[in-house]
Computed example of a mutant assay.
Amino acid sequence: MPPPSRPRTPRTPRTPPPPITAPATHPGPGRAPSRGGLGRPWKGTTVSVPEGTIPYRQARAAQPAALERVARRLAAQLGTPGAFPAAVRPVFAGIGASHAALALPVALLGEAGFAARRVLAGDLPPGPVFDSADLVLGVSQSGRSPETLAALALAGPERAGALVNAVPSPLAAAARWSVDLGDEPDSYASTVGYTGTLVGLTMLARHLEGWDSARALAEWAGTAELLEEFEEVLAPVVAEVTAHGAHVVAADFVGSGASLGTAEAGALLLREVARVPATALATRTYLHGAMESAGRTLHVVLGDGREGELARSLARAGHLTLAVTAAPLAAEGTLHVVRLPGLA
């Protein structure tokens, strides 16, 4: 592979292959066969709401107001003297959607000159994983993830922190420092819990950067109104993608930096909620071979850099593509674009 300073120009992806027969059965237990693309659930599938959770649509509708509550609660907690220690080499640990969320604070702190990193709690490398860390922050919406609990135990109580939603929780109890989202009601697919975790991780990153709680809270002013307006902009684009997605049997999510975490969370959400096989990859990794299997696939490309060219290349080869970007990218053919709102 060429060095990063000389990235190769990707080959134009091949045109979609002829239609193939979709899998006859759903891989999950107890699921009935036959599915037909995006927006069309597995026939015979019954959707139940697990005890202690709320329906997915209800959780989505609750997000705007919930995120403003979460921001206010975290500002109050972080404004307490000694709430969290100063740290320049923090390590964030989580699994599943919580691990995906960790890409955001790592990117923010990296931009500020911190040696921050994230680790997958369920697959820690051998050796002294946390020796160089001055803070190990375990993240789990439920506060019960056994892998994250084990990672925090490995780090030791003297430098263990936690961010959770559920109150009380074993993870918070095992940490020397902890903050929580306020036990917000959530869906099984971790809707408000995930987006609230992003708010919490951002505010924690700002705290480590030296921001006071009032300044960190001000960054989230108007969140509810912005999200409600964005939903109106988003709805017709999603409807178009769904309408053109009857042939889709899988989805690729692609991004870099903080957007890689969004890609990971998006792929997981599509698997959990829509039951569509989905994979997340870093942009440059995708360009080095992974995109060659394009065909009967939805491509969700997130980012403002090389991702724009990638999205155009995929769409011009006839592939259904959704670009999520703040860059001035125009929709064309099979390329659909969600423009992220500008932030002051």
Rank of each mutant, 00 (worst) to 15 (best):
P128I: 02
D123N: 15
G138Y: 02
L109Y: 08
D186A: 11
L154N: 07
S132L: 13
V167H: 05
S190Q: 13
L163V: 01
F92H: 04
V88L: 15
A153M: 07
A151F: 06
L171S: 04
R144N: 10
D134Y: 05
D183I: 00
A116W: 07
L181Q: 14
R144P: 04
V136I: 05
P146D: 06
G110D: 03
D123Y: 14
A93W: 10
L152H: 09
S142Q: 05
P105L: 08
G110V: 06
P128G: 03
L137N: 02
A87G: 03
V136S: 07
A100W: 13
A174Y: 12
L149N: 09
L102G: 03
V91H: 08
D131Y: 08
D180F: 04
L163A: 06
L149G: 13
F92M: 02
G110E: 01
G122I: 07
V129H: 06
L109Q: 08
A155H: 02
I95R: 15
L181P: 11
P125E: 04
A112R: 13
V91P: 12
P125M: 01
D131N: 12
A162Y: 01
A173S: 14
R144D: 10
P90V: 01
G143N: 10
G127N: 03
P126M: 02
A107P: 12
P168M: 00
R159M: 09
D123W: 14
A93F: 11
D134W: 06
A112C: 12
L135Y: 05
S142V: 00
L135P: 07
S145Q: 11
P185E: 03
A121S: 14
G161T: 03
V106A: 14
L120M: 12
G143P: 11
L102P: 03
G143E: 05
A115W: 08
Q141C: 14
V88E: 15
V88C: 14
R89A: 12
T148W: 10
A116I: 04
P157D: 00
E158S: 10
S190R: 08
L163F: 05
E147K: 12
L152R: 00
A151S: 08
G94A: 05
A162P: 11
L181A: 10
A174M: 10
G127K: 01
L181G: 12
D183G: 12
D186Q: 06
L108P: 07
A175I: 09
Y188L: 15
